[in-house]
């Protein structure tokens, strides 16, 4: 696990469900074939309604053209991020698109577990409503050792909630690594 993540922020609203993160019709691609895997990145966040895509203005595509990599590596969400269908393809799609960390007010349980146990990305809980103060395109630095995020564009630092009991799994990079390190498997 790295200690610091610097990247551009992509800001979303409340209740971003997994159908918006990766629409059901794209779940048919193989996750073990490297070429097909790219499709998940390509279609990441493709079902977010246009006016809510990249707040505050909206209408900001997460992926441009045929790419599977996004220019944004930090997602700032509102409450109940990742609700809906349990698909692990959701955090996977974000990871394939290059997202390293999601910061939201709260998460749906299965999305949170998937992000942590699959080692796809780090799901932090924010304390403030960060999606109202950080803008899409702002450069942010997330510090995993001090549980904080700094908006490099404005210079303001915000505290995040510590990861708590899942910190060890995040640190190991997922459930299997954690289990091997602790001789559970």
């Amino acid at each position: 696990m790295v200690d610091k993540i610097i990247g551009k922020a992509y800001v979303l609203g409340d209740n971003i469900d997994t159908d918006q993160i990766i629409p059901a019709e794209h779940l048919v691609y193989s996750t073990s074939d490297p070429e097909e895997l790219k499709k998940y990145g390509h279609f990441a966040l493709s079902s977010v309604p246009q006016d809510k895509a990249g707040l505050p203005q909206g209408n900001t595509p997460f992926i441009i053209g045929d790419n599977h990599l996004s220019e944004y590596s930090v997602i700032i969400g509102g409450s109940n991020f990742g609700c809906g269908s349990s698909r692990e393809h959701a955090p996977l799609a974000l990871q394939v698109a290059g997202v390293k960390v999601v910061i939201a007010e709260s998460y749906a349980r299965i999305f949170f577990r998937n992000s942590v146990d699959g080692g796809f990305l780090v799901p932090f809980d924010s304390i403030d409503k960060l999606n109202l103060v950080i803008k899409t395109g702002d450069t942010v630095e997330v510090d995993l050792t001090t549980n904080s995020i700094t908006n490099k564009t404005t210079g303001v630092e915000y505290k995040l909630k510590p990861l708590g009991s899942v910190y060890d799994i995040v640190k190991s990079g997922g459930l299997f690594n954690y289990a091997r390190e602790n001789k559970l498997i």
Binding site: S86, E88, I110, N114, D117, G118, F176, A179, L184, I185
Partner: peptide
Amino acid sequence: TGVGNTDAAYILGT
């Protein structure tokens, strides 16, 4: 309750 694929794979083996 529902879980994702990694969790299910872990259960499948253990």
